[in-house]
Design a protein around this nucleic acid. Structure first.
Lengths: 224, 224
DNA sequence: CGCTGTGAATACTTTCACAGCT
DNA sequence: AGCTGTGAAAGTATTCACAGCG
């Protein structure tokens, strides 16, 4: 009621935000193995980071551990899920039902992590017969009504590059404020709209860069 | 021949390396539009970064611009491609030919950017009849011989999470030193092996985090 | 004169190391 | 005694702002 610090500590660094989902998954794994308590060391190992970083990251959320003991797996899992916002579930639309769109529609990891695909849209009428992952592929023209009906704020673009920008603009106009873009294009969107991109070939190129370096200097600096 | 600084300046910051492919794509786009010269400002806008960052990034590669003029699109494109290592082409194997593996195998962006998928492998024998993207799906048992035959150093894992770690170990044993992992698991690999991961649900969770924040404080701090 | 290339300043991230709680 | 939570230090990355070349 006093306007500041609405209900959780604000201002979590972006680098930390990007790791919270990793911790969440690690905790889910531990819980499935029947682990009820873990130290920062154990959780860090499971998540693939070092323990100092993990503790610093968690410190931005609050003090959810017990000194001398560690963290309660289930409790911490819930706190992180709440912080990320995946205790509620988020309706999502996917636009572009080619190979990648198919894969995304069928990806069970969305459903299990707080996301529900409410519609699959494609501009190509020849795809509108298809049923993918239990949903029928609908016309892109239906975007606005679907967004309004399900109160969608997250959209996924899996179209070819040329179509991506037009799709993004129409998503924004329809009220979507977060976009996950798989098309290899830079999207420019108004302030207040978040875009994250996943570019398969960029990841390979980064690997190629390092791979190339390995070939040049295998042992680095132990040469006389 | 003097052992130090083999032929290009070493030690490009990781953040810069991750943006080089973006610049490369931007330059390819400009070249296709018939642009032969561009300023850092123009290229930065096309790539979606600011111009100071772009210039700083390029400065790690060398001085490929002309003061008062800008960059020659084709020349800079080649220099970046060479730096990344995509002037040669890289043979790649994909393991796990489910929905995602299909999408990856068919992704034209690999071929056009210096990568050539030489084999598709799957542990499930019922998939071994299939032909995907012009390649037939082969047994995972063939990994070693394929890696040896094509001198493969980059592998892509698109299996379910449970299988990923075993696949990675076997890839490493077979001689692969760079792995792109789409399975939602932390892989631990020996030093000298690079792993990059793409996790679809993590990206959505990061969007959800910000989306949740928007809902709480729409206008941020302009409230009396 | 304009635009690149780059030191210097700032901002962000990671790591260290230990005080302080259980 | 042991492990969390955190200031302070070290390491990276980004941005500024301008000297210097074409």
């Amino acid at each position: 009621m006093t306007a500041r610090t609405p209900d959780s500590a604000r201002d979590i660094p972006e680098a930390t935000v990007a790791r919270l989902p990793v911790y969440l998954r690690a905790l889910t794994g531990l819980a499935e193995d029947g682990t009820t308590t873990c130290s920062s060391e154990e959780l860090a190992a499971t998540a693939g980071v070092n323990s100092a970083k993990l503790r610093k990251d968690l410190s931005y959320l609050g003090s959810y551990g017990t000194r001398g003991v560690g963290y309660d797996v289930e409790y911490l899992r819930y706190q992180i899920a709440r912080e990320i916002g995946v205790t509620q579930d988020w309706p999502v639309v996917i636009v572009g039902i080619g190979n990648l769109g198919h894969a995304l529609a069928n990806y069970s990891g969305f459903r299990s992590r707080g996301f529900r695909v409410v519609a699959l849209l494609d501009a190509d009428p020849s795809r509108h017969d298809e049923v993918v992952a239990g949903l029928d592929v609908r016309s892109f023209e239906d975007l606005e009504s679907i967004v309004a009906e399900h109160d969608v704020s997250i959209g996924v673009i899996a179209t070819p590059a040329v179509a991506a920008h037009a799709v993004a603009e129409r998503m924004v106009a329809a009220g979507i404020t977060s976009i996950l873009n798989f098309a290899p294009t830079v999207l420019s969107v108004p302030d207040g709209v978040d875009v994250r991109k996943v570019d398969l070939s960029i990841e390979l190129q980064i690997l190629a860069y390092h791979e190339q370096r390995k070939a040049v200097s295998p042992g680095s600096e132990d040469v006389s």
